[in-house]
Nucleic acid binder design. Structure first.
Lengths: 235, 235
DNA sequence: TGTACATCAGTGAACGCGCGTTCACTGATGTAC
DNA sequence: TGTACATCAGTGAACGCGCGTTCACTGATGTAC
């Protein structure tokens, strides 16, 4: 029974998704969704709190699609965290170009401090990707900073692309920005001899961050001080 | 009389601008604007074609503010086209942060091929800035490509910033992206001896583009072929 | 197993609102002779 | 200079629509005894 309800919700979300893709966000009204799904308005209100709730779930649905694609594609990649950054960039941009209306809902509706709640998981994936690069000693800036830079540049490239007439879209811009930005936050694989101080400090820092939850043979204050030093070595 | 009309329009636009800044784009309805301006609805319709017309003029008003600020600030700068790129970046981001609702109207409402008409002038300013850098031999990629990259990166940085809670906004990300992107499209000042082939080819190309309107001692086909070669040398 | 009751998804219909827009009209300003 | 007319910015009032949302109710499903 609960299962049936979830299936019904799912079907309504799929209908709403279709409306969104075909007519943009303004085509998604509670009435239009209910009508297209073949249910009455109160039935819709039984499934979703209100219109904001519906839109939030629709955004979550978009992030689900996005993450599924991205996880599948990245699973095929060999174990090269920096190559994953390149792939991740292209997958992001490609998703935006294929689903512009979803992309606008997910990344384009910018209001100070009002990020769609479902965005967290996508953000977490990016953090993970950069965390892995840091652990491999391939980052030359702290992962948090790298995340911000990548996020800003990727969305900028995607929105610029979406704004162009489909015929005249030019992926060179995205590729150029991608190469520039990723090169600026990563280093070459550490030479076995080299004294690549910054990236090693960051690699240790990333490993520490992971290990802190399971336990580390240092007092909290000691660990905090150590991490501060590592940041200084990295800067 | 006509002067009076224009003053009245101007006043209505100022009122609409205030509504926009205070309540975002959804606060700008024809009725709200008319009421706030102390005029009746039909009077508003006598001044502007319809709501789209009003919004287009409001966007133009925003671009006017933006360009006035930018031109004034850049006029103070000494004659260094690359320094102007840095200044231009910061001015753009700063404008966006100070006027988020305007910025969203001007740069955030992305629909394929439907750029606000008033955006052209702002885009032209960016093209000019990069053209000057090219003429000074400071560009390592064609100006058109540099324009696209800068535009994408700048809007991405600005929108990311606008999306953050004002308290936790971090200008480091913008600065880092700015430095990376500008460094990637520019070169150091040409050494007097150096064989900086690419930037010199691009400098000549930029000068040619300007001169083509006034006349150049080459046939059209010759000039076209020459420019093609210059692009090849630059690539 | 059968009956009485409770739960709850869904229905048909409507509420009230704000929206963009337009109607018929007024009154002031300018123009022609 | 004075009168008759044309122009046109602006008024008061309303149209009609689509919207988000909720009302009172039905009928099916599940539960208790």
């Amino acid at each position: 029974m609960n299962e049936g309800r979830r299936a019904a919700r799912r079907q309504v979300l799929q209908v709403a998704a279709k409306l969104l893709e075909e007519g943009g966000s303004e085509a998604v009204s509670t009435r239009a969704v209910a009508a297209a799904a073949g249910i009455t308005a109160p039935a819709l209100y039984r499934m979703f709190d209100d219109k904001d709730g519906l839109l939030a779930e629709l955004a979550a649905y978009g992030f689900e699609m996005y993450l599924a694609e991205k996880r599948e594609a990245l699973a095929l990649t060999p174990d090269d965290p920096v190559a994953d950054l390149y792939r991740g960039w292209d997958l992001h941009v490609d998703f935006g170009v294929r689903h512009p209306a979803f992309y606008m809902l997910m990344y384009g509706t910018v209001q100070p401090g009002r990020r769609p709640p479902a965005a967290d998981e996508a953000h977490a994936l990016l953090v993970t990707l950069l965390g892995r690069a840091a652990e491999a000693g391939r980052l030359r800036v702290p992962a948090a900073q790298a995340t911000r830079v990548i996020h800003a540049a990727t969305t900028g490239a995607t929105l610029a692309l979406i704004g162009e007439e489909p015929a005249e879209r030019d992926l060179t811009t995205s590729a150029r920005l991608r190469d520039t930005v990723i090169a600026s936050i990563t280093t070459d694989p550490p030479a076995s001899s080299g004294s690549d101080l910054a990236s090693r400090a960051l690699a240790l820092d990333a490993a520490l961050e992971t290990a802190l939850t399971t336990g580390v043979p240092l007092r909290d204050t000691e660990a905090a001080l150590l991490r501060e030093w590592l940041q200084q070595l990295a800067g």
